[in-house]
Design a protein around this nucleic acid. Structure first.
Length: 264
DNA sequence: ATGACCTAACTTTTAGGA
């Protein structure tokens, strides 16, 4: 069986309900990780997605941030905190495990990595600190040698290839060398970028700003990623960028991306 | 130029996003 796992920064789940609903109907992912849901758990349209056949796991927050996982299968071993030694002030993380009989447990980290702008600032420092936590979490999870993926809005432009004109982004927290070095440190633990494993073109963006006609001019950036552990890599089939969703009515500024895995 | 961004919030302006 094929398992489809997607990630999408929707920029407000309530504002995006129509776009989200039609995309789910057309694409039928088994699991969809959402970022920037921008509402507390009580305000999340949970019943709506349940009526579409999804189990809903929520880590919401008022107005900002907020992550969620919609899944056709029950998930276990949930963890909503990347920080355990201090009060978690921002809802940006869900860890969960998919257990399909006769398959190895498949661990998922749904992340909304801090933006970090402006540079320099306390927000930038928070971004780097959050990334240190992610590196520690990944290190531990990779050591289990089971299928494990980190997916979501990383707010990281990995290379000059991943932005229309990197000279505009030199002092932006998404492209600052400190951010990209931490991302490299994460990847160098032994994670593979699903996009690079299945690249159809050198340039494929996941975000276009609402301002300045960025979409029409294709002035985008690639910041939504799916990273695979070696044993997730072993069952990886392909990666799809759903670019056309950016052209829909009332779109998110991000598009969804999907990785498919071969389960037995 | 008729206009040039979107979401959410104790909403008529501001914070946050990227």
């Amino acid at each position: 069986m094929i398992i489809k796992i997607s990630t999408w920064n929707v920029n407000g789940v309530r504002a995006r309900i129509d776009v989200l609903t039609s995309w789910l109907k057309n694409n039928q992912p088994d699991i969809l990780c959402l970022q920037e849901t921008k509402c507390v758990n009580e305000e999340f349209p949970k019943d709506h997605f349940e009526s579409m056949g999804y189990i809903v796991y929520l880590n919401g927050q008022k107005s900002f941030n907020g992550v969620a996982i919609l899944s056709k299968y029950e998930l276990t071993d949930l963890d909503f905190q990347i920080y355990h030694d201090k009060e978690e002030e921002q809802a940006r993380f869900i860890e969960a495990v998919l257990k399909i009989p006769n398959n190895l447990p498949f661990k998922i980290n749904c992340i909304y990595l801090p933006n970090g702008n402006p540079y320099p600032s306390a927000k930038f420092d928070y971004k780097l600190d959050w990334m240190d936590r992610l590196v520690e979490r990944a290190k531990m999870n990779i050591s289990l040698e089971l299928p494990y993926i980190i997916l979501g809005d990383f707010n990281i432009i990995p290379t000059e290839e991943d932005v229309y004109d990197h000279t505009n982004w030199l002092d932006d927290a998404l492209f600052r060398i400190e951010s990209r070095k931490k991302y490299r440190q994460l990847k160098n633990l032994g994670l593979y970028d699903a996009f690079l494993l299945d690249t159809k073109s050198m340039v494929e963006y996941t975000h276009w700003d609402y301002q300045g006609g960025a979409w029409d001019k294709n002035e985008g950036i690639r910041i939504d990623h799916i990273l695979l552990s070696p044993s997730a890599c072993n069952i990886f089939k392909n990666m799809t960028s759903h670019t056309n969703t950016r052209a829909s009515e009332k779109p998110s500024d991000h598009i969804p991306v999907t990785a498919e895995f071969q389960f037995v």
